[in-house]
């Protein structure tokens, strides 16, 4: 579904990502883990066109989308959430989703601004319900609680109905109940046919939902496989806990 081939990114003297290969299969949940600064978010930014890679290709269903602008990547079917929340704080919950829907449907053309988009309204309603925000639809985004803002960010991404969803640390700052709710929501998304890449520090969540896990360290992929096997991998333990001295 999504193929990352020999992807590298260098920022000045820092090699943030080094020749990473990654295959994400259709309708699977792939966990992408690694210590801070291991290059996880850089990969998301490379895939979604925020950064252009120094080397390598990104393909979606065999179509080369390397270096495409973010809005084209979104239109092609890859949506993402952000590690740090980036909502339109001065707009209501509904309007946040509406702007995303509008951009995706009409690319901001006059026709899009004038026509009544009933299908879009239905989709927004359904997405708000799915993310348990329907009763908050008229609240300004900046007035929402943290967990609600996280849900709104996911909702805004889902409004565009992407085939592949990249979740960049969706559980950061959430409490246990909220993480459980998030887990159920991710599993429901899979049931609905989405392909999901979950970047997360919260190991329990990753191990529970991911079918495969890839581990990054210093920009390189050091392990890949089923969660249980990756957890027992010596290099992964070293990356997280440091090398054993004996």
């Amino acid at each position: 579904m999504l193929a990352i081939e020999g992807l590298s990114k260098r920022f000045g003297g820092v090699q943030a990502v080094q020749r990473v290969d990654l295959q994400v299969r259709q309708n699977e949940i792939l966990g992408l883990i690694g210590p801070n600064g291991s290059g996880k978010s850089t990969i998301v930014n490379l895939v979604t066109g925020v950064y252009a890679p120094t080397e390598g290709r990104v393909r979606l269903r065999a179509r080369d989308i390397t270096g495409w602008a973010p809005h084209r990547v979104l239109a092609a079917g890859i949506g993402r959430t952000f590690q740090s929340i980036r909502l339109f704080g001065g707009l209501t919950v509904w309007q946040n989703l509406w702007v995303a829907r509008q951009a995706q449907a009409g690319a901001g053309r006059l026709r899009g601004w004038l026509a009544v988009d009933r299908a879009g309204m239905k989709r927004i309603e359904a997405t708000l319900e799915f993310c348990r925000l329907l009763d908050r639809r008229d609240e300004l985004a900046r007035n929402l609680a943290f967990g609600e803002q996280r849900r709104l960010e996911l909702a805004r991404t889902l409004t565009a109905d992407p085939e592949v969803v990249l979740l960049d640390e969706p559980a950061a700052g959430m409490n246990v109940a909220e993480i459980e709710e998030l887990r159920d929501r991710i599993l429901t998304l899979k049931q609905r046919g989405k392909t999901i890449v979950l970047i997360e520090h919260h190991m329990e969540l990753v191990m529970e939902v991911a079918e495969r896990v890839a581990v990054l360290n210093f920009g390189e992929k050091i392990a890949e496989g089923p969660p249980a096997r990756v957890q027992d991998d010596e290099r992964v333990r070293e990356a997280y806990l440091g090398k054993r001295r004996d």
Partner: peptide, 22 residues
């Protein structure tokens, strides 16, 4: 909607770009 889009860009042109707004 036109006005909402204008306010979205004023709110965060970065987020608007990433959402696909021209």
């Amino acid at each position: 909607r036109f006005g909402t889009t204008i306010r979205a860009v004023a709110d965060s042109s970065e987020a608007a770009t990433l959402m696909g707004v021209n």
